[in-house]
Write a protein that binds this DNA or RNA. Structure first.
Length: 266
DNA sequence: AGCCAGGGCGCTC
DNA sequence: GAGCGCCATGGC
């Protein structure tokens, strides 16, 4: 893997879809992909070591020049501090179905619970690759699953959402090249609204101008740019556009992580 | 016990 | 089209 700025631990544990899928094994992170194990680790020099460079380049968006991105999103002292604190936090990209599944699970849920449910789904519906390693479930396996069985994976009220959304993906071509087309499609899926469709657009398709507003991003934006006042999402997006334009998705990840990881300390 | 979590649905008005 | 209660589950 070519040298580029990456904090592997930070990136894989920052609440993006890989957080829910990859597992730590000693110094390495592992997951299944295409029926095989992918391993990735980082040595003391910061070099990335993996047995599947291509998949890592995709996952960690190797095409992004982080220095250029930092220059563009360092719009103020808050962003400068967030970048300094979380230097090497990269935006990730994941398979569209994986991204969709993870974020359908995210509604009114916590990151540890999303991971737990994702792992349970992998064990129940994925393919066994090694003794304790399972692939991500196929779209088909979730589409044909019984809701009562899905609920055994602690997905709660999201069971019908998962099943219906899997069916939608099964029956349609979802290889969109425009953000608007992707959003239109996913907004019509059960259990997916404005926020989650923005997440799929960002983390699944890699449209960096997406700007999902969850409770943390909302708090961050209100506190930093609106003097702590309650603000409509429309105004928040307007501000994000003004500040970061087509890179607001990247800025969003720093806002999210800054506020989420320091909950209780403020 | 009650509130909150990378929200969205279905119902009011 | 905006506002509100509700939705499983688990942590604090």
């Amino acid at each position: 893997m070519k040298k580029f700025i990456l904090d592997l631990n930070l990136t894989l544990l920052s609440g993006q879809p890989p957080h829910f899928v990859w597992s730590r094994e000693g110094e390495k992170f592992i997951r299944a992909w295409n029926g095989k194990i992918v391993e990735v680790s980082q040595n003391e020099k910061g070099e990335i070591i993996s047995n599947n460079k291509k998949f890592c380049d995709f996952t960690f968006r190797a095409q992004d020049d982080l220095k250029k991105i930092y220059k563009k999103i360092s719009t103020d002292s808050f962003m400068e501090k967030a970048i300094k604190d979380y230097y090497g936090l990269r935006l990730t990209q994941s398979d569209v179905w994986e991204t969709t599944c993870c974020f359908v699970l995210s509604s009114n849920n916590s990151i540890p619970n999303i991971r737990k449910s994702t792992q349970l789904l992998m064990q129940k519906y994925g393919e066994k690759i090694e003794s304790n390693l399972y692939s991500f479930p196929s779209i088909e396996s979730i589409a044909k699953a019984k809701e009562s069985e899905l609920k055994k994976c602690k997905v709660g009220f999201r069971a019908p959402y998962l099943k219906h959304t899997a069916r939608q993906l099964l029956e349609n071509d979802f290889s969109f090249s425009k953000k608007g087309d992707a959003k239109c499609f996913f907004l019509n899926c059960l259990g997916i609204g404005e926020k989650i469709s923005e997440c799929i657009s960002l983390f699944g398709y890699g449209f960096l101008d997406s700007f999902p507003i969850d409770v943390w991003v909302k708090r961050a934006m209100q506190q930093v740019y609106f003097n702590g006042r309650e603000t409509k999402n429309e105004k928040i997006i307007e501000k994000a556009n003004e500040l970061w334009g087509d890179l607001k998705g990247y800025a969003q990840q720093y806002l999210f992580y800054e506020f989420m990881s320091k909950k209780g300390k403020r």
